[in-house]
Each structure stands twice: as C-alpha cells, then as structure tokens.
C-alpha cells in the first residue's frame, strides 16, 4: 500500500506542494528535449535523404564544436572560427559523399550503416589528433551568447532560467522553422523530399543524388554544430558529449525516423519525461533511472503507435 502511495500519490502531492520545482523540472526537461530534438533532426535529415542511419551524427556534433573551440583557442576570433567550422562541416559533407556514399551506392543499407561507424572512429581520431582529448570551454561571450540566469520569484519559490538555455530554445526553434521552410518552399527542399520518397524516380527527373547528399550532410553538419555549441555552453566540449547523442535513439523510436515534426515532439516528450521521472520517481529506486527511462517511454509509445508518432505507416500488400 505504501509503495502504491509512493508511486501514484506522493509525486503528485510534491508537484502541488512545490509548484516552483515542478516548473523548474519542466523547464530543464524542455531545454534538454529541444537539444535532443536537434540531435534527432540530424539523424532524420540524413535518413530521409539517403536511407542511412548515420551513427556518426553524435561525433559530428562533437567534431563541429571542437573545431570551433579548437580554432578559437588557437587565436582565431570567435565569429571567424564559427564560419571556419561551418566550412569544415561543408568539406566533411563533400568528403562523405565522395568517399563513402558514392562508392557504396546500390549496396545494402547495412553497408552504409557500417560505413558511418567507420566515419565515427575517423572523426574521433581526427578530432583528438588535431585538438587533443581534453574538454574545452565554449567561448560563450565571444560568440555573443548570453551568460547568467533570470531568477523568477514565482509560485511561492524560485524558478531559475539560465540565459544560455533560453538562447538554446530560441535558436533551436529558429533552426527548426528554417528547415521546415527550406523543405517545403525551396526547390532544393522539394528535390530533397523527392529523393527521400524514391531515389530512382528522383534521378529520372534530373535530380542529382550526389548534390542532394552533399546538401543534406552539410545541413546535418550545421545542425550538429548548433547542438554542439549549445550543449558545450551548458557543460564543456568533450568527447563525452558523443554519448549524449545516443539519447536521440529513443527520440527517433518515438517520433519516427523520417519525420521532422516527430523529432521535435519526440525530443520534447523524452526530455520532459525523463526529467519528471528522475525527479519524482527516481528516488524510489535510488535514482539514476534517467538513462533507461527514455527508452522505456519510447517503447511504451510504440505499443500503441509502432511506426512512431509521426512515422510513415508502411503497408505492404501481398
């Protein structure tokens, strides 16, 4: 009886007794969720255009942020370092298309998936070789990002909003809106959607697969850079960030591998869900449930929507 009370009653009593902590938890979950959504977005973009689950998306985030910080530490001004980091991500996209995707075209998907494993280790090695393995501090002020917190004395307590988290939420929203416009309204975006729907049909109407792949990988690189900057500003830029990118997996399970809105909504559900779970129910089992709770949430959703929240329902007639 006591256990049932602790599971079903007590957490909600706590929410009512300390609404400021509830709002703070929701905010932390929202910010985490927005960042998970951005990571997931990188996976979705590439999966849509090439059918490849890009295992290297996490290390792309670290590599992009590391390039920016590494250049800054070598004396390059922050805005120029940012531009150069974007340039490096473009070169990476070109390289991936030329060295990985083009030679493996028409090979089974698993080959491409394994190739992204290889790419992961190449980027880890290259990053460590050039910039070293130690964590680096993101030059928040030099990049024009805000520091400090806004403390709101509300709901009988205190809700503290870190300015960098607010900036992350705004930048992520702008990027998502920008990508939506890019996909829906531009010629390249439409071509990209055509490739996602059917490679051969797209080729037959004169769409260059190679060009599209470069654009998609570059876009995923930009998303990776933005995520790396935001997450790096919250903690540090280190290779441990790569592990966080695996949080995108439950987001993708939940949102569907091919849906941009799915990545966003999935990210928010996972972000908020895991924070609420860890904060209100975690202490019942000694804490530390956050790392698997995300998967539990995703799998629970799958029971009702096997294709994910926004995934395409595939019906094969036989």
């Amino acid at each position: 009886m006591g256990l049932l009370y602790q599971i079903f009653i007590d957490p909600f009593m706590q929410m009512g007794q300390a609404p400021d902590l509830l709002v703070q938890t929701l905010w932390e979950g929202l910010v985490g969720g927005v960042l998970y959504a951005l990571i997931a977005l990188g996976f979705v973009l590439i999966f849509k255009a090439s059918g490849v689950f890009n295992f290297a998306q996490g290390i792309m985030m670290v590599f992009a942020a590391l390039t920016l910080v590494g250049l800054y530490e070598k004396g390059v001004p922050a805005p120029l370092a940012l531009l150069l980091a974007i340039g490096v991500m473009y070169l990476l996209a070109l390289g991936v298309e030329r060295v990985v995707l083009r030679p493996l075209v028409n090979q089974p998907d698993i080959m491409l998936f394994m190739a992204t494993f290889g790419l992961t280790y190449i980027l880890i090695g290259a990053g460590q070789l050039v910039f070293g393995g130690d964590p680096k501090e993101m030059p928040v002020t030099a990049l024009g990002l805000p520091k400090g917190a806004i403390d709101l004395k509300i709901l009988g307590g205190l809700v503290s909003l870190q300015k960098i988290d607010i900036a992350a939420a705004i930048i992520a929203s702008i990027m998502v809106a920008g990508l939506a416009v890019f996909f829906q309204k531009t010629r390249i975006g439409r071509a990209l959607r055509a490739v996602a729907d059917d490679h051969q049909a797209a080729l037959s109407v004169g769409i260059s697969l190679n060009q599209i792949w470069v654009i998609v990988w570059f876009t995923a690189g930009i998303v990776a850079l933005a995520t790396g900057i935001m997450w790096g500003a919250r903690s540090d830029v280190s290779f441990a960030l790569q592990v966080i990118s695996l949080k995108a997996l439950p987001v993708l399970i939940l949102g569907g591998f091919t849906s941009v809105p799915g990545a966003i909504v999935g990210g928010l559900i996972i972000g908020i869900g895991e924070k609420l779970g860890e904060f209100y129910w975690g202490p019942l089992v000694g804490g530390g449930i956050e790392s698997w709770l995300a998967y539990a949430i995703a799998l629970a959703f799958l029971l009702f929507k096997p294709e994910g929240l926004f995934g395409e329902k595939i019906i094969e007639r036989i």
Partner: peptide, 22 residues
C-alpha cells in the same frame, strides 16, 4: 542522500541537481 550519475549522463546532470535543490 544518494545521487548516482550514469557515465552516459555525465554532462547531463540537471535532474540530479534538481534533487539536490529539493
């Protein structure tokens, strides 16, 4: 009061510190 941090969550400790705050 115990606050375990999984290796995968090393850079994502906001939940642990919310518990500290409570």
């Amino acid at each position: 009061k115990l606050y375990p941090v999984a290796a995968a969550e090393m850079q994502n400790q906001s939940a642990q510190w919310l518990n500290v705050r409570r």
